[in-house]
């Protein structure tokens, strides 16, 4: 294996175009390289290339505040938007008082202290499924095979939405928080709502993101809500993946809710009663009930 030393975004993306793998904190990349699901002849360290830290605390012009309509918008003060570098660690976000509560809590409840100090936000958003069939490199449907082994096998930790093909549950807590907050993502070539980074895998394209192989996440723009919260159900009190994570953010009269541990991608819930349309597997129906309770609590927590 070879370690490249890109100094600029252009050098990094050129290396990715040649098939190298991006390395941020390495908490995903290193174990995956060791266990087999990921192959790489060259690694491209992103430290020093991708922005790190929170800055550019600026106000959005009111015209851009599309989520606020009518009289409220006319009188509302401009909302600050935080720019968070994709290279910022979860540990840095966990203690930053200016970060909206939902994202701060999602980072605080994610992984372990060591992993949060090493792991970056960009790497977290792009983490692969924790489905054991995938991790053990079983050649399941998501890996190009013709069967989802979890469906007939162990799937207590799996999905209850979007699980028609792959039944895995996206593990990122920060992604759910950022979806609820309505974050925007900037890459080296485009700006997009974070929701458009993710897509359900299809038969003809089994990727769960819309990121090009040589595209870099650079920065997230995170609007400041009036109130936000992240609640996480786990098998133990600390250091566990979400069975269900619920993020809620209220801006003016509108509340956005997003789920972790619910679908193969971070899942935006159109409305609380959209949980009635869940498609749980036998082993995940309990998750729908957990989600209902957490959604109720989250709505209460962000109510004016």
């Amino acid at each position: 294996m070879e370690l490249l030393r890109p100094r600029t975004i252009a050098e990094a993306t050129a290396a990715l175009r040649d098939g190298a793998v991006a390395l941020a904190g390495g908490t995903e990349v290193v174990p995956l390289l060791r266990d087999g699901p990921l192959l790489a002849a060259r690694l491209v360290p992103l430290a020093g290339v991708v922005p790190r830290g929170v800055d550019g605390r600026r106000a959005t012009p009111e015209a851009e505040q599309s989520h606020e309509v009518g009289a409220a918008a006319a009188t509302a003060a401009p909302r600050p938007v935080l720019r968070v570098g994709a290279g910022t660690t979860l540990a840095e976000l966990e203690v930053d008082p200016e970060i909206p509560a939902a994202l701060r809590e999602a980072c605080r409840l994610a992984a372990s202290p060591q992993l949060r100090s090493m792991g970056t936000l960009g790497g977290n958003l792009l983490q692969a499924t924790r489905c054991w069939y995938w991790r053990l490199h079983s050649g399941c449907w998501l890996q190009g095979g013709d069967r989802c082994h979890a469906r007939e096998g162990e799937h207590r930790e799996h999905a209850f939405f979007g699980n028609g093909r792959c039944a895995s549950a996206h593990p990122s807590d920060p992604a759910a928080a950022l979806l609820a907050l309505g974050a925007t993502l900037r890459t080296d070539r485009r700006e997009l709502p974070l929701s458009e980074l993710y897509r359900l895998p299809r038969d003809d394209d089994r990727s769960t993101t819309t990121l090009a192989a040589d595209e870099l996440l650079l920065e997230l723009e995170v609007p400041s809500p009036d109130a936000s919260v992240y609640l996480k159900a786990m098998d133990r009190k600390r250091f566990a993946f979400a069975l269900v994570g619920v993020a809620a953010a209220r801006s003016g009269g509108e509340v956005r809710i997003a789920l972790a541990g619910a679908a193969p991608i971070p899942w935006l819930l159109a409305a609380p009663d959209a949980l009635d349309e869940a498609t749980p597997l036998p082993g995940t129906s309990y998750k729908v009930e957990v989600a209902r309770t957490l959604v109720d609590r989250a709505l209460e927590a962000v109510a004016p």
Partner: peptide, 20 residues
């Protein structure tokens, strides 16, 4: 666990060339 500049990190998944 070891400290890197005083911060706890997992040495099993830290590439030695990334310590800098």
């Amino acid at each position: 666990t070891v400290l890197l500049d005083g911060v706890p990190a997992l040495s099993c998944i830290t590439l030695v060339h990334a310590v800098g």
